[in-house]
Design a protein around this nucleic acid. Structure first.
Lengths: 242, 242
DNA sequence: GGCGCTATGTGCGGCAGCGTACAGACCGTG
DNA sequence: CACGGTCTGTACGCTGCCGCACATAGCGCC
């Protein structure tokens, strides 16, 4: 798989006009993102930003007492490290690789150089940040009002949307961390889904058997986030690059 | 009270360098913001943005079944309508006046004209959006892990920080809508605070008697949001304008 | 001063999720 | 093949919040 093929798989980079992309391309460094790697710690300096290709990154908030909650999920639809160009200088959350895979890494000052051209890159990144904001807002709502069952469905679908296959590698323990609930709660919820024939679970490996089934069980939060994301970034035809 | 005095009371406008502010000033239209007014509906077009002076605006998400949750609170520290320059074109949430008062209103295209100068205004607004993101993320965490008691404290302090006095006009019913809980839950939580001598409640009128007391009861979420906000916008000395 | 409205207080059954504990099940390794 | 570690399933009491139903209390208004 060539460099170019890879980058086409990050939808943000893919949306970038040719000229801008060519400027950036020499600085895009493809790297492996192993499961569990912590990309940012809260308060840490932002040296790089990441454009996921086949990996998924979670923005997590970890509380003083150790419990945690996922704020947003980022896959090949986005970028990790928006705080850089938003001007904070540091990251407010922890960012963890939730599903291993590849990503493009870009040095912070290279991104800022392009951002400060005030061209397509700026508008693209801001629009993406807007969709990220929607996701975070919806997470807040979902945490308030919906059951673990529904949230598990939402989480599965959000992850599935960012993966090429219908299989995830993820223990219930980890999912519980993301959702900010007990591991047993996930066991129970996953049990129901499995009994309904929607998924198959075995030791850290989930196969989604009936995606439409999940979509009927999920709360509106998933659809809201997806709709807004599709509105801001109209999904391209299957293979836009020749 | 003159025009200039008012605008000095919005910290964002206040932070703007003289030249930028002078360009904007003729277009800043001071208006009254009555309690309960809906400024934006989700999906609606963004004709104006608002810089609160003495009012507070809540970003709310209202679910299909009618229950709601507050996503963020905006007072004279910020601006309502960030989605405009983020590129969405429309607002994803409802925005409601939570505490009546005054605000500056600015036509969308006037803001965009200044934004597109790619100068101080752009960086200021992006930095503000970053602090808004932090608030939303923390709301998600708080909704997941903290009790109504703690959330009420957080909510009171966030509101208090955006008001000149230590009094709020707000029924328990409305607070419940904001927090996304039952009205009775707020009654109970407020009862505890009242019994502890921290606040005094009477028919839609709250007087905060012991602010430090609230701060000891509140969850970390409040402090995190405040710290990040102070970091991004170092609080000025009491009266920066001569 | 009585009426009606709105705001607040209270009580009760029910349930979802928590904390805890422990039992099986699966898997790699020696 | 036995062992240890990890992952998953199950059970039980507890708590916080919900939904509901009502009882009071302040406040304006005729």
């Amino acid at each position: 798989m060539t460099d170019l093929d890879n980058s086409a798989l990050n939808q943000l980079l893919n949306t970038l006009p040719g000229e801008e992309y060519q400027r950036l391309r020499p600085h895009l460094e493809p790297i492996e993102m192993p499961l569990g790697e912590v990309i940012y710690e809260p308060g840490g300096e932002l040296r790089y930003v990441y454009f996921p290709i086949t990996c998924i990154v979670s923005l997590l908030y970890v509380m003083e007492n150790g419990s945690s909650a996922e704020i947003a999920v980022i896959g090949n639809d986005g970028m990790v490290g928006v705080a850089l160009f938003m001007g904070g200088g540091s990251m407010p959350n922890r960012a963890v690789v939730q599903s291993s895979g590849r990503a493009y890494r870009l040095r912070a000052h290279q991104l800022m150089r392009e951002f400060n051209q005030f061209g397509a890159m700026l508008h693209l990144l801001l629009r993406y940040t807007q969709s990220l904001i929607t996701q975070m807002a919806q997470t807040a709502v979902c945490n308030r009002h919906h059951t673990v069952d529904q949230q598990l469905c939402r989480w599965l679908l959000l992850s599935l949307d960012r993966l090429p296959s219908n299989e995830l590698n993820m223990t219930q323990e980890l999912i519980a961390n993301m959702l900010g609930v007990r591991r047993e709660g996930v066991t129970e919820a996953a049990g129901k889904l499995q009994q309904a024939g929607l998924i198959q679970y075995s030791r850290g490996h989930i196969t989604v058997l009936d995606r439409p089934g999940l979509e009927t069980r999920v709360c509106e939060c998933y659809h809201v986030v997806k709709a807004e994301s599709d509105r801001l970034f109209p999904p391209p035809p299957p293979m836009p690059l020749g």
